[in-house]
């Protein structure tokens, strides 16, 4: 087709992205004006590159579940369970504290990584099985499995946090590579891979089609069950990576860490242009939405807003965003 049409198409597809960018700049400007000294300090942005990625991964995971018209309310449970299982493994291998634990060799840490990722994979597979094979509605299935994963974390730890991870593990959460935070590199790498899979592979496009109409997808010969299953496995895997980063950054793992991330992941996914009813999603949109909201909350924290108040503002933001989207669609 002609390039003129392509351009129009690009603009239309990317109005959402452009608006998000505009929003980000606006937040940036507002926060800079409100905290002129603190907000613009490089340290502030640097710390964001460590804190934001875990939430970004959870948001991408949420976006994947929403893409097929589902939702995954168990992502936080999976993240914590993965970290706890790995932590218990390290404590068994190197003792509960002391140099034995901290200096565990790379091979053991790699084994721990494998264990954590496998936990996420299996947890995602259970979700996928329940949703794609048993055909339980995603909300109910993941409410149920979410309880089970949190419950297993409680059973495994007895309640208190597991404190103390190997130094190598912690460097996943707060190390740098060529001056860039490792979590940020992980986020960018994974976001790139997910974006590529979604736009350039048959599997990715199948997910868009399934989200638009699962019935039509069956009649088009798409393996709906398998693709849906795999998307939840990927969701679980992404959640476990988030859990690894979170436990590495804080050097601890607990059954109820990051519970407020659930809402935030939903918000970022929706703000990033994901249609919760399925069929529309954009990794780039989610990443920009993440940046916007992280700038907002860090600015608010610099203004000594409590975490609770930040939660309040996130909630308000979610509602305002959907209201604006609805207004915009109605006018169209």
């Amino acid at each position: 087709m002609t390039s003129g049409l392509d351009l129009r198409r690009f603009v239309r597809r990317d109005t959402n992205i452009l608006q998000l960018l505009g929003l980000t700049v606006l937040i940036f400007a507002a926060m800079s004006a409100l905290n002129p000294e603190k907000f613009l300090r490089p340290y502030n942005f640097e710390s964001l590159t460590f804190v934001a990625p875990e939430l970004g991964l959870l948001s991408i995971a949420m976006m994947l579940a929403m893409l097929t018209g589902g939702i995954d309310l168990s992502v936080i449970g999976i993240a914590n369970l993965s970290a706890i299982v790995a932590g218990l493994f390290f404590h068994a291998a190197g003792g509960a504290r002391g140099p034995g634990l901290i200096n565990l060799p790379a091979t053991t840490v790699a084994a721990g990584l494998t264990i954590a990722l496998t936990t996420g994979l299996l947890a995602g597979a259970v979700n996928g099985l329940l949703i794609a094979r048993v055909r339980i509605t995603p909300i109910l299935a993941t409410i149920g499995t979410g309880q089970v994963y949190v419950g297993l974390s409680l059973v495994l730890t007895g309640g208190p946090a597991i404190v103390g991870f190997p130094a190598l593990w912690d460097s996943i959460g707060n190390g740098t590579l060529a001056g860039v935070a490792v979590p940020l590199l992980l986020l960018l790498g994974i976001a790139g891979v997910v974006a590529l899979v979604l736009t350039r592979t048959a599997f990715g496009i199948d997910l868009f089609l399934i989200g638009t109409s699962a019935k039509a997808a069956i009649f088009a010969g798409i393996r709906v069950g398998r693709a849906t299953f795999l998307s939840y496995v990927a969701t679980g895997l992404l959640a476990s990576v988030a859990g690894i980063i979170l436990s590495g950054r804080t050097n601890a793992a607990k059954s109820d860490y990051g519970t407020s991330y659930l809402l935030q992941a939903v918000l970022i996914a929706v703000l990033g242009g994901t249609n919760p009813a399925g069929g529309r999603a954009s990794v780039l949109g989610v990443v920009i939405a993440l940046v916007a909201l992280m700038l907002l909350s860090s600015g608010l924290q610099l203004m000594r807003f409590s975490n609770f108040l930040v939660d309040f503002i996130w909630g308000a933001f979610l509602l305002i965003v959907i209201a604006i989207n609805a207004l915009r669609n109605r006018r169209r």
Binding site: T201, A202, I205, D206, F208, L209, T212, A216, A217
Partner: peptide
Amino acid sequence: EGLFLSQSIDRNLLASCFRRLAAHGML
């Protein structure tokens, strides 16, 4: 049962042959 209404005509036409069109897994 047939169409993916909100998706493009292109995607609707190609819905059943994405796998065949993908060279080395990439489209």
